[in-house]
Every structure is written in C-alpha cells, then in structure tokens.
C-alpha cells in the first residue's frame, strides 16, 4: 500500500517534471530565435539601411530603402483590396445570411483558406495575372496578399459583428432606420474596435509573408515607383540575401529580419492592447 502510494507520487513528479521541462524547452527555443534576430540584426541597422539602395553584389554598404518602400506599398494596396472585401463578406455572414447554407459554405471555405499554403496562392496569381499581363509586378504581389487577407478578415469581421447585441439593432430599426443604415451607422460602430484589431493582425501577418511574393512581385535592386514593375520587398530580399554568398548580404538579411519581426510583434502587441481596452 505504502509502496503503491510512493510509486504514484514518483510517477506524478516525473510526469510534471517532464512537462515543465518540455515547456522550458519550447520556450527557450522560441526566445533563442528572438535573441539571435536582435543581436545579429542590430549591427546592420543604421541610417543608410533606411535611406540607400542596395550596393552592387559583392561590395559593402548601401541599404534596403527600396525594399522597405516595396513592402509598405504592396501591404497598403493589399489592405485596400482585402479589408473592404473581407468586412463586407463578414457583414453578409453576420447580418444577412447568419444561418443560410451559403453562409455555412463561406465559413467552411474561409477557414480552410486561412490555413491554405500561401505558396499556392503565389502560383495561382502567377497564372492569373503575371503571365497574361507579361511580367512580375507590385500589383500581382498585392493581389496575392489580398487573397491571403480576405478569409482572415471575413471571419474576424463576422465574429466581431456578432458580438454587437441584437437589442442595439432592434432599437435602431424601431426608430425607422433602414437595415443598411443600421448596419453601417450602428453595428459597425459597435464593432469598430474588434474589427480594427482583426485588420491590424491580418496586415501584420501578410507583411511578413514571403512565399506568395516570390512569383508575383519578385525582386528589384533599384527604386521602382511603377506598380506594374517587379518590386523588392523586405521578405523576398531576406530570402535572396540569406541564400547568397556574401557576408554583407547576410548581415543585411539579419537587419531586414529584425525590422520585419519588430514591426509584426509591435503591431500584435498594439492590437492586444486595443482589445484589452474593450474588455476593461
């Protein structure tokens, strides 16, 4: 009896120690990556990193100003396409088709598209836009990112709109307001904080995407202000620089990694703060 008790206690201790150890293992790895990104990225970041073009291959110096601009431009265009489309689709799911079959199918497909391989989206946009229109372009990259955003924004918008109490809708309808005005002026206003959070998270996610941009916006070593030309982005630059042979390229890639990681993490933290503000 006593032995049995001791054995159970020992098993308990061992299992708990194992799970604490595996938790520590996972957490250590994750922070190890962050630490390396910071320590190896910081030395590469100076003023010219933000203001100058890449130096010719093999020579030191220069910066990634064009890639920073490219990531910004492509993300902004993708947001301009993906967010309104996603919010409207979410509006249908929450306000009109709540229990319809169409809505069920849209939800199911959105959830699958959210986790679908982003590189396939790149192949799709290549076949749909790049090849027929004769070349890589910032627009094609933005379309690829917008496709990735659409299901994410659709589902978040739906969830956030559903949180608005029905009594609010009924109160506005009782005053004689038409349904669309109720949705735009009352329901959207009630859900604005949640939708903003969702949009911010979606923007952060696509700004770190690489795979869908490889065959759509491609890369460029120079300034490019035309949306129909190949455009450099931070993530694709990291890919080609990290795979390249030069030490200076590797340093620049770490710098770009630090920049994109900090932006993504800051936006995530900011979004969490907004969301917490609501529940408070």
């Amino acid at each position: 009896m006593n032995l049995h008790y001791l054995k159970r206690k020992a098993v308990n201790m061992a299992a708990l120690a194992a799970s604490a150890f595996s938790a520590a293992f996972g957490i250590v790895f994750l922070f190890w990556i962050l630490k390396d990104v910071i320590t190896m990225g910081l030395p590469a970041i100076d003023l010219s990193f933000f203001t100058r073009l890449p130096a010719p291959p093999g020579t030191e110096g220069g910066g990634l100003a064009n890639a920073i601009l490219g990531t910004f431009t492509i993300t902004v265009i993708a947001t301009a396409i993906g967010v309104p489309a996603g919010i409207l689709a979410g509006t249908y799911l929450s306000e009109y088709g709540r229990k319809s079959h169409v809505a069920d199918v849209v939800r199911f497909i959105s959830d699958i598209l959210v986790s679908a391989p982003s590189i396939v989206v790149g192949v799709f946009v290549y076949a749909l836009i790049v090849r027929p229109f004769g070349g890589f372009s910032a627009i094609a990259g933005a379309v690829a990112l917008a496709i990735i955003m659409l299901p994410v924004v659709t589902r978040t918008a739906e969830e956030m709109l559903k949180l608005v109490p029905n009594a609010t809708r009924e109160a506005a309808l009782a005053l004689g307001a038409p349904h669309w005005k109720v949705t735009v002026l009352v329901v959207y206003r009630g859900a604005i904080r949640g939708i903003t959070t969702g949009v911010l998270l979606a923007v952060a996610r696509v700004s770190g995407e690489t795979a869908p941009l490889l065959f759509t916006s491609f890369n460029n070593s120079f300034w490019n202000f035309k949306l129909t030309e190949p455009t450099a982005t931070l993530t694709v630059t990291i890919f080609s620089y990290a795979m390249g042979p030069y030490e200076d390229w590797h340093a620049k890639a770490w710098g770009a990694a630090l920049l994109i990681t900090s932006v993504v993490l800051l936006v995530n933290i900011f979004a969490r703060v907004i969301l917490r503000g609501r529940s408070a």
């Binding site: 996603g86 249908y92 306000e95 598209l113 669309w180």
Partner: peptide
C-alpha cells in the same frame, strides 16, 4: 439602399467561394 447593400455584401461573401473554385480551376 437595403437591396444594394445586401447585394454587395452577398457578392463579397460569394467571392470567397468563387476564389476557392478559381484557384482549383486555374491550377
């Protein structure tokens, strides 16, 4: 206005299904 707004939001909801179908067809 109601019909228009409902129509637009319906269109974008359908666009999700359309997108999935289009990806399959194009690939």
């Amino acid at each position: 206005g109601d019909a228009l707004f409902k129509g637009i939001s319906y269109f974008f909801a359908l666009s999700v299904i359309l997108l999935m179908a289009l990806i399959f067809i194009v690939l």
